[in-house]
């Protein structure tokens, strides 16, 4: 029997198994390359603003006080901004720089243990050769006219190799992540959706019943897609889905698509869950009902 490929969403490929000490797999979601790049750019932007503001403040005070000590302060500040920004923020409780926090990312040890200082230093020291060093070469050669333009080109290629490195491995690891044993996860915050079946039960309108044939059309995948349609509440989608189900099940149109779909959802869910309790599962409409092997 031909099995049509199940659509795989982009986020599904970034799901990773992550087993807690209690033995439960949390299936965390990794930050996408786009989110990582966005967070990095935000951080650079904030660092630039801090640098400019700091330079102006220190510069004006230095001129007023005629003090060379303050330029030493600037040097220290620049050093810590360049080398400490990422490391110090990631060592804090949130495990994220301001840019990462805005995007909703978090640095985590790949083995699920505590994120240690050593790991944070390692992953951010590598940033030096991934980005800051080649970029400083690049800008130095751009500013000094007449120097070898080859150097700036090599610096760009060098940096590009490292910047695009996360795209060439499954887990979106930077070279620094590789060495530090960390990865960057998406910090999802999901609200608990309302209970569709329960809200049906509260209303006392008559409900539809469905024949075995009508309920036997679909599996878990379709059930959960239907759940998504009901939660989203998009009218076009509801009309389309209701029409499709009616056509397949050979049911007449009763002009209440939402009511029809929620009744169908509750009935199908109850049926599939009943089967699930005795170890019978059906992944989607193409699959036969199979006995759970794990049980």
């Amino acid at each position: 029997m031909a099995r049509s490929p199940k659509p795989v969403s982009a986020s599904a490929t970034l799901r990773r198994s992550f087993v807690t000490p209690e033995g439960v797999d949390l299936r965390i979601e990794l930050g996408s390359a786009g989110a990582r790049a966005g967070a990095f750019m935000l951080d650079l932007l904030i660092m630039l603003v801090v640098l400019i503001v700091g330079t102006i403040v220190i510069g004006t005070t230095a001129v007023v006080n005629e003090s060379i000590l303050l330029s030493g302060l600037w040097l220290i500040g620049f050093f810590f901004l360049r080398n400490g920004w990422f490391a110090l923020f990631e060592m804090g409780g949130r495990g994220a720089t301001p840019g990462k926090r805005i995007i909703g990312l978090r640095v985590v040890a790949r083995d699920g243990s505590r994120l240690t200082g050593g790991a944070v230093i390692a992953r951010n020291a590598m940033r030096e050769i991934e980005f800051f060093m080649p970029m400083s070469f690049f800008f130095a050669t751009i500013v000094q006219s007449g120097t070898d333009k080859m150097i700036s080109f090599v610096a760009l290629v060098w940096s590009a190799v490292f910047l695009f490195f996360p795209l060439f491995n499954r887990d979106r690891l930077r070279v620094g992540d590789l060495l530090a044993g960390t990865w960057v996860v998406q910090r999802a915050k999901v609200k608990l959706g309302h209970d569709i079946a329960a809200s049906l039960a509260q209303s006392d309108r008559p409900r539809r019943t469905f024949s075995d044939h009508a309920l036997g059309l679909y599996g878990e995948y379709e059930l959960q897609t239907l759940e998504q349609v009901l939660r989203d509440g998009d009218n076009d989608a509801i009309v389309t889905v209701a029409a499709a189900i009616r056509r397949k099940a050979g049911l007449p149109d009763d002009h209440d698509d939402y009511g029809f779909l929620s009744d169908y959802y509750a009935a199908l869910c109850a049926r599939l869950e009943r089967q699930m309790m005795v170890g019978l599962r059906r992944a989607d409409k193409y699959a036969e009902t199979t006995r759970d092997r794990a049980a």
Partner: peptide, 17 residues
Amino acid sequence: TAFVQAPVPLVNATRFR
């Protein structure tokens, strides 16, 4: 389809929630 005046079959999630 037939309409009946009966409670919706409770799904596990409802009891669990």
